[in-house]
Computed example of a mutant assay.
Amino acid sequence: MIRVLLVDDQRLIRAGLRMLIEDTDDLVVVGEAADGVEAVRRYAELVPDLVVMDLRMPGLDGVAATRQILTSSPRAKVLVLTTFDDDEHLFPALAAGAAGYFVKDTDPAVLLDAIRRTAEGDLLFSPTLLRRLIDRALQTRIESPSAPADLTARELEVLRLVGEGHGNQAIADRLHLGVSTVKTHIANLLDKTGTDNRVRLAVYASKLT
């Protein structure tokens, strides 16, 4: 069972998320917080598997709360769920240590999948945001890498799809593989390419010559 802490200053949003999450068999809401200060305190009390974090809140905002939680608990996982999809909110949240970033009009099924996968260790973003991250990285003057010689043909296929911004389920569907097999390929790719998370792997794939 994946234990979730909900952080949002709007009671109606928290109630809607609780209903969505608790309608599943594998997720449960263990607590709520209405601001960043309460979020930090509740995380320390509950130690949930995942925090679903709003950004704009009174007092301590979501970025600062995320930073405090990750400073005290480096293995904590925070999934940002916010109204804002602009760079002014996205990049500070990532710098604070957020493991994912989605906007509040995300399809409920996609959000539930993101909660599960972020709790399992994936670094996740809505497709448009991931594409922006890749595009920004591609603007930097970094020499294009070559694919490691020891990549298998299947790993090259997975790498290409990661670079296009596809998630594990989409890659599995396209290549007719199980999701667990895709995760294994991605773990191998992270090791072979020397990248430490999915975003950097996607950037690496996009820069390949």
Rank of each mutant, 00 (worst) to 15 (best):
T71G: 09
K77P: 13
L208V: 04
L156M: 10
D23E: 09
K192W: 11
L5I: 03
A64S: 05
I2W: 04
G62N: 01
D25Q: 08
A99L: 13
H176W: 06
Q139F: 04
S73G: 08
G31I: 13
D61N: 15
V47M: 11
D113P: 05
N168W: 14
T193M: 14
L123C: 12
N197F: 10
M19Y: 12
N197A: 02
L208I: 08
L12R: 15
L50K: 12
G16Q: 11
L189W: 08
T195N: 15
V182Q: 06
E155M: 10
L175A: 03
R154D: 07
T24N: 07
E45W: 00
H185Q: 03
V162E: 03
L175Y: 07
A109G: 10
H176T: 08
Q68M: 01
A149V: 07
E155S: 12
D107Q: 14
D122L: 14
R198N: 07
H185K: 06
V103K: 11
L159Y: 02
V182R: 13
A114W: 01
T106L: 07
D8E: 00
R117E: 05
Q68W: 09
L208H: 09
V80L: 11
R160Y: 12
K207E: 07
L133C: 13
G121V: 13
A39N: 04
D49M: 06
V179L: 02
P127A: 11
D35P: 05
T152P: 03
H166N: 07
A137D: 14
L161M: 05
K104S: 03
A95D: 02
L55I: 15
L161W: 08
P92I: 13
V203G: 03
K77R: 15
L190Q: 10
I186T: 07
R42A: 13
L17I: 12
A76P: 12
A44I: 04
V182H: 00
T83H: 13
D196A: 09
V203S: 02
D35L: 12
L123W: 08
R75W: 09
V158Y: 09
I21D: 09
D87P: 02
T152I: 08
L129D: 00
L208P: 05
L177A: 00
G194F: 05
H89S: 15
Y101H: 14
I171W: 06
R136A: 08
H166A: 05
A76N: 04
L5A: 14
V63P: 01
L60I: 14
I142S: 09
M19H: 05
R136H: 04
A65P: 09
D196C: 12
T83W: 03
L112H: 02
D54E: 13
L133I: 00
E22R: 10
G97F: 12
T152F: 01
G163W: 10
D173C: 08
L46A: 02
E32N: 11
V30C: 07
L20E: 01
D105R: 15
V110Q: 14
R117T: 12
R141H: 07
L50A: 01
A65W: 02
K207Q: 14
H166T: 06
L175H: 10
S72H: 02
A65F: 07
L6G: 07
P74I: 10
V199C: 02
L17F: 00
L175C: 09
